[in-house]
């Protein structure tokens, strides 16, 4: 039986996330995925950077490392090389992973280091009060784009795939059980797995853009996406402006540590 309390540091509660924040749904899916994989708590390392999503690392009863802004993949790379038998999961956000840490993301993907990277995309810098992020859609209001965002956002999944990630997927908090399965598949992939999860930020993103209550915002995620398998049968106009969910790319190739061992022998 899955009991989330077994995986949480209950003494750390109450947590510091805002009411309605989607990050807890992602954490729940992650813990269920770990449970279903029958991984022990000792063999898991959760590494995070700086930002709301990165604070999740503090609440889980694993080996946890809350690093500097944008750099969790660098720390995680060191851990994985030093102790290849550990399952290393990186939790990052859109600002942490794609802005200040963008360089580390593409290089971790290129090397195909055996890490699972969960990028929680809420399109905003929440911790600092609601500034636009590299994933903020055009027109969206933030404290630093008061008249609407004008920079083109990243599609982080395309970026990760182009950089060489052997597993790329996108999930949404509207579908936590599908998300759990994606996390399982991501961890099972031996190389670098990248999983973007659309999460909501009612406190800043939702409020600034008048998107209704948290439930409305989670529902909006569903309306903004199309499953990648269903998309294959849909005409192009039905896909315009939609993000694809599901496993977007899975092309297993030897993990960095295996390549290293063979190459330097």
């Amino acid at each position: 039986m899955f009991d989330f309390r077994e995986y949480l540091r209950m003494e750390m509660f109450p947590h510091m996330l805002c009411p309605g924040c989607g990050h807890g749904i992602v954490l729940g899916a992650l813990l269920r995925a770990i449970h279903s994989l029958k991984l022990t708590k000792d063999e898991i390392v959760v590494v995070s950077g700086i930002g709301c999503s990165s604070r999740l690392a503090g609440y889980v009863d694993f080996n946890t490392l809350h690093t500097t802004h944008g750099r969790p993949l660098a720390f995680a790379t060191g851990i994985k090389l030093a102790r290849p038998e550990l399952t290393v999961i990186v939790i990052t956000g859109d600002g942490d992973g794609l802005s200040i840490g963008g360089n580390h993301l593409i290089h971790a993907a290129r090397r195909n280091v055996g890490l699972t990277c969960l990028l929680l995309n809420n399109q905003i810098y929440g911790m600092t009060g609601g500034q636009f992020a590299p994933t903020t859609q055009i027109g969206r209001v933030s404290t630093t784009s008061p008249k609407g965002q004008y920079e083109t956002p990243f599609d982080s999944c395309k970026l990760a795939e182009a950089a060489g990630a052997s597993f790329v997927a996108r999930g949404i908090t509207y579908e936590p059980s599908a998300l759990e399965k994606l996390i399982v598949a991501a961890i099972e992939n031996k190389g670098f797995s990248f999983l973007e999860v659309a999460s909501d930020c009612p406190e800043f993103f939702g409020r600034f853009n008048k998107l209704g209550n948290p439930a409305d915002q989670i529902l909006m995620q569903k309306q903004n996406v199309v499953d990648v398998e269903a998309a294959a049968a849909l005409p192009a106009e039905r896909l315009r402006g939609k993000m694809l969910t599901g496993i977007l790319h899975h092309e297993p190739r030897p993990e960095y540590g295996a390549v290293y061992a063979e190459s330097v022998a």
């Binding site: 590494v47 500097t68 720390f75 060191g78 851990i79 030093a82 580390h104």
Partner: peptide
């Protein structure tokens, strides 16, 4: 930046 990050990670893993 990544270099020292990786070194710190390895050290935390005991190396």
């Amino acid at each position: 930046i990544a270099s020292l990050g990786a070194v710190i990670g390895a050290s935390l893993a005991g190396v």
